[in-house]
Design a protein around this nucleic acid. Structure first.
Lengths: 342, 342
DNA sequence: TCACTATGGGACATATACTGTCCCATCTGA
DNA sequence: TCAGATGGGACAGTATATGTCCCATAGTGA
């Protein structure tokens, strides 16, 4: 597939740029709709007129619709984005990186969006859209219980989840773990609620304080409300989670100086599901809490990891040394390049 | 792959037509090079200026070169045609027909060129080019002995065989059978000679009269020159042949009224290697002669059948009911449509 | 209710690419 | 040598894309 495009480009040069430009236009519309010409032009660093001609063309072919309040993506537009993704990835060379990363990390598959979410926060949103696309294609139809983690990345995924995902699917969302000490806005509970809302699904919250002792966890487990949720977690067949940089997570969760020291001593580089691991994928510390563990992923029908930004490269690379269920990874070019350039 | 193009077309309409136009331009150049703008324009029913713009573009990207005596295809141009073939087949819908025909007839693979060689004789030449492409990709490197049949279609293949085929290959051509009673221009011997010449290879002729009796064939087989050629045929690892309409072949080979009557009585529809078969693939008559039979194909590394034109549809369809070695078929749209529309 | 902002659409001059149609010097091949 | 084909130049005309305005209006928030 890679060489083929070289020849297409040789025969009809400049068609490629136009295709890419309009594709990114479609992406931007999806991300900000309803949106006007001028905003689009500014965001994409194009002139208003150029955006206009492109929009007119896309209007002709029915990929977008124009309302008084701005441009909307039609259903065809949605489908077009989905179908063009691999092709565009080919053209931009991202496809090559995707396959490289896939073999390098032992993934089921991989989606890379361009940009670096460390530098530009809106790239997270693009990753969210990509996650949405992937779920639409990979999520089994029928009933599913989706275990979800918290974090800013997951919040971005929740933001972009669309109702069309719920066609032929009944979804229940549940926090994968309790008591992570996140701030409310990006807690797993909040993310769950948002996802359920977007997909007309259900969700079950898990309200747990920070746990410090084995004893407390044992007694809490008896609580009916908690036991019920934990049971639901055990029946989850889909997991969506992020991978975090060890130190960043420790700080965000305001972990004690003592624990942080432990992490440093043991060279923790990354975190997932509350488990911290070093660069060899060895788990060096577990936050005491109830719920899903990395080992539970093996029984899942679908596992999606979402993580971007070059600062998370080490964490992600280490994470996939833990032999897990075959995972789909959604990431950005910043992270992918950081791993691949070595 | 099929749907993908729908969306490419929606995003950048009119790029498709341009691609197809330039592709057919490349094909035409290959077929008639060196050739000038005006001839090309006339043959492709385009204006001179359009051809010129396209040529200028292709010149920029280095797919063609301009000499004082006309336009030539560069090596890159050759490669471009090869690589774009499946893509163009997709775009024109030929690809779909190729896969349909492939499963319908139980082929190894299938190449369909557009047109109908019954209506326009130059389509045969295009099939020849396609055969050339296929051989370049499928013919094993190293030494090969290629058994070849006669006929107008095979003559067209011979015409288009190119020297690049001989890179990394030493080829010996030999007539698959003797004594078919063809006119000299399209005899297997002539075809062999032409092919050997084009590929800097060798060939061995097989001069045999029409055979009428078992006795004659037995004694002829003793002749050293003939025995040597027959031995070479036995060692052939590649076969290129055509499939003919039964009645047309009977007429062309001036077979006796008696034999022709037999063919009619037994409902012969097609012929290959001098064997006539009915619509169920049952062999109903064998021309007495020496050399290759259909059953010999099983031991070949590569078998290519070339046949086009709607009038041969019944013959081709019946031929592939004879369970043979997996064969590559090169045909035209006229024949393919005739088979598929039923 | 009012003012403000962002929206689509219209308009127009300009730039770029493509097209149709000539002519001409030159090369090729018989 | 000469007829026919070749590439290249030229130019007017057309289609499309671009840059830059202005305008009426539909929402939105005060």
């Amino acid at each position: 597939m890679d060489l083929e495009w070289k020849w297409v480009n040789a025969v009809v040069p400049k068609m490629t740029q136009k295709l890419l430009r309009r594709y990114s236009l479609l992406l931007m519309i999806r991300q900000t709709q309803p949106v006007g010409r001028r905003s689009l032009a500014e965001r994409l660093a194009l002139t208003e007129r150029t955006v206009r001609t492109d929009l007119d063309s896309l209007l002709d072919t029915g990929l977008v619709s124009m309302q008084t309040n701005g441009v909307w993506l039609t259903d065809d537009g949605q489908t077009a984005i989905l179908n063009l993704q691999p092709l565009v990835a080919d053209l931009t060379g991202l496809r090559k990186k995707e396959t490289q990363l896939k073999t390098r990390l032992g993934l089921k598959d991989c989606l890379i969006v361009s940009g670096d979410s460390d530098d530009r926060p809106d790239v997270k949103r693009t990753m969210g859209e990509a996650a949405n696309d992937l779920l639409r294609q990979q999520l089994p139809t029928g009933e599913s219980v989706v275990a979800v983690m918290g974090g800013t990345t997951m919040a971005a995924v929740a933001e972009t989840l669309s109702a069309t995902l719920a066609d032929n699917r009944q979804l229940t969302f549940v926090p994968a773990r309790g008591g992570m000490g996140e701030s409310p806005k990006i807690q797993a509970n909040t993310v769950c609620a948002r996802m359920a809302e977007a997909t007309n699904g259900h969700f079950q919250a898990l309200y747990l304080p920070e746990l410090s002792s084995k004893l407390a966890s044992t007694s809490l487990r008896q609580e009916p409300a908690i036991a019920q949720t934990l049971d639901l977690i055990d029946h989850a067949n889909v997991a969506i989670h992020c991978v975090g940089d060890a130190m960043a997570m420790a700080k965000r969760r305001q972990m004690s100086a003592e624990v942080t020291a432990t992490l440093v001593n043991r060279h923790a580089v990354g975190e997932a599901f509350g488990d911290f691991f070093d660069r060899n994928g060895q788990i060096v510390y577990r936050v005491p809490k109830l719920g899903l563990s990395i080992s539970d992923l093996d029984r899942m029908d679908l596992v999606v990891a979402v993580a971007g930004g070059h600062s998370k490269a080490a964490a992600v690379e280490a994470y996939f040394k833990i032999p897990p269920a075959k995972t789909f990874l959604i990431t950005d070019e910043g992270l992918a390049d950081m791993i691949l350039k070595k």
